[in-house]
């Protein structure tokens, strides 16, 4: 089954982190991504740019509205995601717990619709 691991964290805390801390975090994510690839479960994943770069679009009554900012203002923001392919939820939860984001913020684990 395919699962998306959505990584939520406090963006301003991350931006306030020292260069050294950021480097360490990037290295941890690098090792984690590599572990996913080596286990043969990695489908894809990316880091998102900060919510300050977000633009929200909706079409209401045939009119396109474009708003500056994220869809929802939250204390913790979606900062990236992985898509993995594993046998079941327990395997997905095990991988989610290993993600560096799980110790700084939280990971939401969602199954994908099979297309």
């Amino acid at each position: 089954m395919k699962y998306m691991l959505l990584i939520f964290g406090n963006e301003s805390a991350q931006q306030a982190a020292s260069k050294e801390q950021t480097g360490q975090m990037m290295a941890a994510y690098g090792a984690y991504s590599q572990a996913l690839v080596q286990a043969g479960v990695m489908v894809g994943g990316d880091r998102l740019k900060p919510v300050s770069t977000a633009t929200t679009v909706r079409v209401a009554n045939g009119k396109t509205e474009v708003l500056n900012g994220p869809y929802a203002e939250t204390r913790e923001q979606l900062g990236g995601y992985y898509i993995i392919d594993v046998p079941d939820l327990d395997a997905a939860l095990t991988w989610a717990a290993r993600c560096p984001g799980a110790s700084h913020g939280a990971l939401e684990v969602r199954p994908l619709w099979a297309m």
Binding site: M1, Y3, P87, D88, L89, D90, V109, P111
Partner: peptide
Amino acid sequence: RQAGIPLRVPARED
């Protein structure tokens, strides 16, 4: 069903 919760007795560590 949808989240893929396994019907399995967990491994010893869990």
